[in-house]
């Protein structure tokens, strides 16, 4: 039954995005940022890569700003419209609701990513790209986006209002995705190779970079899955805590 509840919550939240126009705005911002930064903030014209590397490289930064727009109302609206009381006085548990909501955002982000396929196909009209590699990179970006969605949803679960949720989620996502703290440690303690290697294992940017550069390692995939699981658990715990 828990899975059915999860699906019901997922379906409700997924529909919500398309009903509220929020997703269209986020999609427009996302696509414009992706295309704009790709053309003007990378060396894409001069160094068009077979794996569409520059495009994927930009994704953590862009998604870190777009995903909080999608997740900010995830729990805040439940508080605002008093629907949380309706939801949690039904035979459904907190984790199912939290995961359902997360899956809804994740799928919306997936659709957003899918809509960017147009950019790739358009570029493909002029220069060739390695289709299988690009498709795998899309899959890996979806995985990375999942971890940002989970972190963002967890931040939203701690907040009662949408602006607070947006700010905290953006802060967390940007901190996580854009700041390569592995390189900080490398700069501060250049001689401690083991520590550098260990911190690099926690470096979001580096892990994603490895993946999209063609090294699809088990540890990088596990990294994003663990972040996702941790954030989901934290988010569900936050809701349960606030409820009790």
């Amino acid at each position: 039954m828990a899975f059915k509840d999860l699906l019901t919550c997922f379906e409700k939240d997924f529909k919500f995005y398309f009903q509220s126009n929020l997703v269209y705005l986020a999609m427009l911002i996302y696509l414009m940022l992706s295309a704009g930064l790709l053309l003007y903030a990378s060396d894409f014209y001069l160094n068009t890569t077979a794996n569409f590397y520059q495009f994927f490289k930009l994704q953590p930064g862009i998604l870190a700003m777009v995903i909080p727009v999608l997740t900010m109302r995830l729990w805040a609206d439940e508080y605002k419209y008093n629907t949380l009381e309706i939801l949690f006085t039904q035979p459904i548990n907190t984790a199912a609701a939290a995961i359902g909501k997360f899956l809804a955002v994740w799928l919306v982000v997936g659709i957003m990513l899918l809509s960017s396929v147009g950019i790739w196909l358009f570029v493909g009209l002029f220069t060739s790209t390695d289709v299988s590699w690009v498709l795998v990179n899309y899959g890996l970006t979806f995985l990375m986006a999942g971890s940002l969605c989970a972190v963002s949803a967890a931040a939203a679960a701690f907040c009662y209002s949408a602006p607070a949720a947006f700010l905290s989620a953006t802060m967390l996502c940007v901190l996580l995705s854009v700041t390569g703290f592995g390189s900080w440690i490398e700069e501060i303690l250049p001689d401690s190779t083991r520590l550098i290697k260990l911190t690099q294992a926690f470096d979001f940017e580096q892990q994603f970079d490895e993946l999209i550069s063609g090294k699809v390692s088990l540890s990088s995939i596990a990294y994003f899955v663990i972040i996702m699981a941790t954030a989901l658990w934290t988010g569900a715990a936050a809701v349960e805590y606030k409820r009790s």
Binding site: M1, E11, K12, Y81
Partner: peptide, 28 residues
């Protein structure tokens, strides 16, 4: 059990039918 809060309790962007459908699903 059914609980109706004092205010709210509705998802504003859902139609009445969608709301009912959602409640039915969630109540199995």
């Amino acid at each position: 059990l059914a609980y109706v809060p004092e205010t709210g309790g509705l998802y504003p962007d859902m139609s009445v039918y969608e709301y009912m459908e959602f409640m039915a699903k969630i109540k199995h």
